[in-house]
């Protein structure tokens, strides 16, 4: 596992209601090569509270990357995306939509809402690990992220 350039672990927020996917993401990140702290919320409302450090999240760090599932209870991924991208405080956070939907309208709608990437969850574990690793590589090492 390699360090970040400044030695700090990368903060990742995963908004995902399916514990199976949460576990898979954790496993995939474990196998990756970026030092990271994974935070998990299970619905859109919590996701926004986390991002805004509201309620119990007041001590949480500002994430470097948001992995967003589209189908969540209370507040869906699209609405979260919309809120994040219209909030001047939050809109610089890269948002990667990670979903099982291959529907064209979901893809188009996500990009219209300024998602930074749209990925479909691969159907087997190897594919899943591969995808998470690519996200890590690209967004956490290749890309110059905005300052916090």
């Amino acid at each position: 596992m390699s360090e970040n350039p400044n030695g700090e672990p990368i903060e990742i927020l995963l908004a995902e209601d399916n514990p199976g996917d949460v576990k898979l993401t954790e496993k995939a990140l474990e196998k990756g090569n970026v030092l990271n702290n994974l935070h998990v919320v299970t619905d859109g409302v919590e996701a926004l509270q986390f991002l805004r450090r509201e309620n119990e999240y007041d001590d949480k760090p500002r994430p470097d990357l948001l992995l967003l599932d589209l189908n969540m209870p209370r507040k869906g991924g699209r609405e979260v995306l919309d809120d994040v991208k219209s909030d001047p405080e939050l809109r610089r956070i890269p948002v990667v939509v990670l979903t099982s939907s291959e529907a064209e309208e979901d893809i188009v709608a996500s990009y219209d809402l300024h998602a930074n990437a749209y990925l479909t969850k691969p159907v087997n574990f190897d594919g899943f690990i591969d995808t998470i690793n690519r996200i890590e590589d690209f967004w956490l090492t290749v890309v110059k992220r905005p300052p916090k």
Binding site: N18, K27, S100, S101, N124, F125
Partner: peptide, 20 residues
């Protein structure tokens, strides 16, 4: 087909994970 995909993905992913 869409909603069947989710649980199926779980099955195949975890069978893979179990195997690995």
């Amino acid at each position: 087909s869409h909603d069947l995909q989710e649980p199926l993905r779980m099955v195949s992913s975890y069978v893979d994970l179990l195997d690995s």
